[in-house]
Every structure is written in C-alpha cells, then in structure tokens.
C-alpha cells in the first residue's frame, strides 16, 4: 500500500511540472524565457516520472522475483540519462541560434552579449 502511494505522489509531481511547462510556454513573452519553462520544467518532471517507473521495476524485480522488472528499470534509467544529457544542450543551441538570428530579449535590463568580441575560432562568412 505505502509503495503505491509513493509512486502516485512521484507521478503527480512529474505531471504537475510538465503541465507547468506547457503553461509557461503560453505565458512568457519571448524565446529565452520560454526556453526556461520548456527545458527546465520538462526535465524536472521527467526525472520524477522516470523515477516512479524505475521504482516500479525495482519492486517487480526484488520483491516479486520478475527479471523483466530489472530490464524495465535499467532501460528507463538509460532513457532518463539521454533526456538529462540532450535537453540542456539542445536549449543552449536554440538560445544561441535565436540570438545570432537577431531576436532581442524582451523587457531586458541588460544585454552584455551585444558587446561580445570576435573570436579567433569563429568561422568567417
């Protein structure tokens, strides 16, 4: 009984943050702030949902003696690692592309990237 309650609480937290990501995408004013919502909230929500699935697999493996549970837990762990590695890097790529294609941050107090010096590694166009 206690196990199901823990699992449902983890699922609820994960779903709450994923819904918050959708709401943030609709509410925020420009690309950068939308990236904040769209990347961080989904990553955090995914950690909790994958965590509950891993717990489920470990329980099926350790307490019910089902080898499929170990398989479920390990594969979900690999998927979680993939999400954790790729999500921030993708966000970084989108932010850089947005700034280079000329989107200015809305309501910005300060923008120091405007004055960035030319790098010697930069590909000349």
């Amino acid at each position: 009984m206690w196990f199901e309650i823990i699992m449902y609480i983890l699922l609820a937290i994960g779903v709450f943050f994923n819904l918050l990501a959708g709401a943030g995408l609709l509410r925020f004013p420009d690309v950068y702030t939308r990236l904040h919502a769209g990347t961080k909230c989904t990553t955090f929500g995914s950690i909790f949902i994958c965590g509950s699935v891993i717990l489920l697999g470990l329980k099926a493996w350790l307490f019910n003696g089902n080898d499929g549970g170990a398989s479920l837990a390990l594969h979900t762990g690999v998927a979680l690692a993939a999400i954790l590695l790729t999500n921030p890097t993708g966000a970084h790529a989108i932010a850089r592309a947005a700034h280079r294609s000329g989107v200015k941050p809305a309501q910005a107090v300060i923008d120091e990237l405007e004055k960035k010096p030319e790098s010697k590694y930069e590909v000349k166009k």
Partner: peptide, 30 residues
C-alpha cells in the same frame, strides 16, 4: 518567430519520450 516554434517542438519531444515510457508500463512491454 521561428525560434519560438523550435522551442515548442523541443518541449513536445521531451513529453513524447515520457509518454512512451508510461505507455510501455501500461502495455507491459519493454
């Protein structure tokens, strides 16, 4: 702008991955 649409797509991708994991549990197949 175009970057806005890409942000939306990125978010959809992450949520689809999570949905697939949940569906794997529902249908009991890895």
């Amino acid at each position: 702008t175009a970057p806005d649409r890409v942000v939306g797509l990125d978010t959809i991708n992450t949520i689809v991955i999570v949905s697939m994991i949940i569906y794997g549990v529902i249908s009991k197949s890895i």
